[in-house]
């Protein structure tokens, strides 16, 4: 169990990246969603010992992650949002090196885990190639492999599926979900789909604040029967609806604009009931908290 209490961080420029965030994260996949700049990465960097919070604490099964950076790093698997590689090293050499760094001192075990990961991430055939020649997807898979070395108890993956094609994304999510049953896995993303598919729990943060925390299905249930949709034809019609109802989202369906709104009762006026999904939850909470 990872408990985050009152975590806050303000950058030297005055940007308040996190404001008093508290979260309880049980083992399993935990999705962190929010728009760009919401504070996801800041939160994750704090958990990955790369940033010092101004206030607050984070403990994993009693271990204070902020105070005990060395211990934290031993049980951590971290995949940053953006990372590069030593271009002239091969994947297998680099993973072996990183395995030593993670304290896997028995060479037999080291060999086994490195080979296992290379196979799981489908890098086996290119393991001896220089990392500098890897495509974006391959590099991302390498990043996943390094994060999973040494059976980490806390896995932090920041936007892991960005830049992956659908097949790769599938493969990655599979791997992650099968590993992430008994350990804490925090996955940040702005792709709501990822969370729906994988996570047993989730949180939405925006502007450094926690908007919602819960089980994805339950949060969807809370919206059941309160989401309505309507295809609009004119600008004037859209503006009228926006004035009258809290709009969750607007997107194109078959070339036509469809508005989804939140309403506890049927709004009538040609609105039809819609099946609430996680995206509705996400946008609903975002718009509700948008200051206006």
């Amino acid at each position: 169990m990872l408990s985050i209490r009152n975590l806050a961080k303000t950058y030297p420029g005055g940007v308040r990246a996190l404001r008093d965030v508290s979260l309880e994260i049980p083992p399993g996949m935990f999705g962190l969603i929010g728009p760009n700049g919401a504070g996801k990465s800041t939160l994750m960097k704090i958990l990955a010992t790369l940033l010092e919070p101004d206030t607050g604490s984070a403990t994993l099964d009693g271990l204070d992650l902020v105070a005990n950076k060395d211990e934290t790093r031993r049980l951590l698997g971290y995949l940053p949002q953006e990372f590069g590689v030593y271009p002239k090293m091969s994947a297998v050499d680099m993973l072996r090196h990183l395995a030593v760094m993670k304290g896997i001192t028995k060479s037999g075990e080291r060999k086994e885990i490195v080979e296992g990961l290379l196979q799981q991430t489908n890098l086996w055939d290119v393991r001896k190639k220089a990392l500098g020649g890897y495509s974006g997807g391959m590099k991302q898979r390498f990043g996943i492999a390094q994060a999973l070395l040494a059976n980490p108890r806390l896995i932090i993956v920041d936007e892991p599926t960005a830049g992956l094609d659908p097949a790769e994304r599938n493969r990655f999510l599979n791997l992650l979900s099968s590993i992430g049953r008994n350990v804490v896995v925090i996955l940040s993303t702005h792709i709501v789909e990822d969370v729906r598919e994988l996570c047993s729990r989730m949180a939405i943060i925006s502007s450094g604040e926690l908007l919602l925390e819960g089980v994805p299905v339950e949060t969807i249930d809370a919206l059941k029967g309160r989401v309505w949709r309507k295809v609009v034809g004119t600008e004037a019609e859209r503006e009228a609806i926006e004035k009258a109802f809290p709009v969750i989202s607007m997107h194109l369906v078959g070339g036509l604009q469809e508005l989804r709104i939140y309403s506890e009762q049927s709004p009538g006026q040609g609105f039809a009931g819609a099946e609430a999904d996680l995206e509705d939850v996400y946008f609903h909470h975002l718009t509700r908290h948008r200051p206006n």
Partner: peptide, 9 residues
Amino acid sequence: VELPRVTQV
């Protein structure tokens, strides 16, 4: 998917 168990020292 099961990764080999390793010991960290």
